[in-house]
């Protein structure tokens, strides 16, 4: 902005004293400009004052993929991938994974503070009552092909929910219940429907209340049992996966939700845009790809895993993704179950391969020198396999289920 940018003659910058400003000389004109620096950034709009002539539009910043552009101020999630740090509202992820359930973490992300018992009870109730969806939602989800990709189903059905709640786009109305809470609450129901449709299982009303890991696993796995009792290790694994993926600050899907939400569309449509982002092979699809790779028992798998990590999101994510450390206990919980399931199972070669890939990743000299490790997709892939999730299912169930809370990660 011109008020913040003072045009000065070249060489006219006062060198005495340190200031939080950046002096830039435009060699086309010899003019020097002083841009304000705050929070380690300069405002891209300040560049517009840099012109060759009065009718010049002014300089712009060119930044494909916003690689070095901050799009918001946020007090929600802090990530330092290189240092292995992930914090939600200042709480380290390892503490949250050990002591909390997903719904508490969702409350923390949205409200900024951990809930006390009374707040948690009210929150759980609020989310639970909004997990129910109109019967018509079931009808149109049944219209998908038997092998429809769950992410495609989730994307479409979430967008369709906006037609059930025409008032949801009145986002500025003072309301006792923000419209985004029901939008979050319905996500696990839709994800469970998509999961069960994909398996060819019937959905029933009892599968629609899934705010906790116990009910979540029931949503996904209940078959003919009169009373479904989930394996506590399975519950824990789901909980940890949901918490780990609850937010990851300004990634592709969050950016999509924010960009589309900036039009003041309803939360369902904005979240559908985020689902679409996660549908992409470079985003949530990375996990899918990893699972497929694990199951493919060809001899090239190990080296491809390495390439995947080197070029893929895992590497960009932070070289030693902080989420990874928290997956290990959950993975250990599941090792026994995995082994049991895999014994005599068609994925036995994949199990051997995983062991080989892990071994290779430990021993490779480039692995440690280049700070390359099996990433969160690798280890969560192992857990999904133990959970009997087909390769295209986890993205839908995990990412959207978990990230509904965090996808609006913004300035709040």
């Amino acid at each position: 902005m011109s008020t913040e940018t003072q045009k000065q003659e070249a060489g006219g910058v006062d060198g005495a004293g340190k200031r939080d400003t950046l002096s830039v000389t435009d060699n086309r004109t010899g003019q020097t400009y002083e841009l304000e620096i705050s929070d380690g950034t300069v405002r891209a709009m300040d560049l517009r004052a840099i012109k060759v002539s009065d009718d010049d539009f002014g300089l712009m910043a060119y930044d494909p993929a916003f690689t070095n552009t901050a799009s918001t101020r946020s007090e929600i999630t802090y990530i330092d991938g290189a240092a292995g740090i992930l914090e939600y509202r200042g709480y380290p992820i390892e503490q949250l994974c050990r002591g909390l359930h997903y719904l508490e973490v969702a409350y923390l992300l949205i409200h900024g503070e951990l809930p006390n018992q009374e707040q948690l009870d009210a929150w759980t109730h609020e989310i639970t009552i909004h997990t129910f969806v109109h019967e018509n939602v079931k009808s149109f989800m049944q219209g998908f092909r038997y092998d429809a990709h769950p992410m495609g189903m989730l994307l479409a059905s979430d967008g369709a929910l906006s037609t059930f709640y025409p008032d949801a786009n009145k986002i500025k109305d003072e309301s006792p219940l923000p419209a985004d809470h029901p939008a979050d609450a319905k996500m696990p129901t839709l994800a469970a429907f998509a999961f069960r449709h994909n398996m060819g299982s019937r959905t029933c009303i009892r599968t629609t209340t899934c705010p906790t890991p116990a009910t979540s696993s029931r949503c996904m796995y209940k078959m003919t049992e009169l009373k479904y009792q989930p394996d506590p290790r399975l519950e824990r694994a789901l909980d940890v996966l949901f918490i780990l993926h609850a937010d990851h600050e300004q990634n592709c899907s969050t950016n999509a939700v924010r960009a589309v939400g900036s039009s003041q569309v309803d939360p369902y449509s904005a979240i559908a845009a985020g689902v679409a982002g996660l549908y992409g092979p470079l985003h949530g699809g990375a996990n899918e790809q990893c699972l497929r790779m694990l199951r493919r028992s060809d001899a090239r798998t190990t080296s491809r895993l390495h390439r995947r990590r080197e070029g893929g999101q895992g590497a960009a994510d932070g070289l030693r993704p902080p989420r990874l450390q928290e997956l290990r206990p959950a993975r250990a919980d599941h090792q026994e179950g995995t082994r049991r399931r895999l014994r005599g199972h068609r994925h036995e070669p994949a199990a051997r391969h995983r062991a080989r890939a892990r071994e290779a990743s430990r021993s490779r000299t480039t692995t440690s020198s280049r700070k390359l490790y099996p990433n969160v997709d690798f280890y969560s892939g192992l857990i999904y396999e133990a959970l009997d999730c087909r390769s295209d299912v986890p993205g839908a169930v995990r990412d959207r289920r978990a990230r509904a809370a965090g996808s609006r990660s913004g300035s709040r």
Partner: peptide, 30 residues
């Protein structure tokens, strides 16, 4: 967009203004 070698997955940065390194408090003490 796909053929443009400068394009990649869109992931903006953020200015983090929140708290750092808080300690977990058990629910009974909140």
């Amino acid at each position: 967009m796909i053929d443009d070698s400068e394009q990649k997955i869109a992931r903006p940065r953020q200015i983090y203004t929140g708290e750092r390194e808080r300690s977990f408090v058990p629910i009974a003490d909140r």
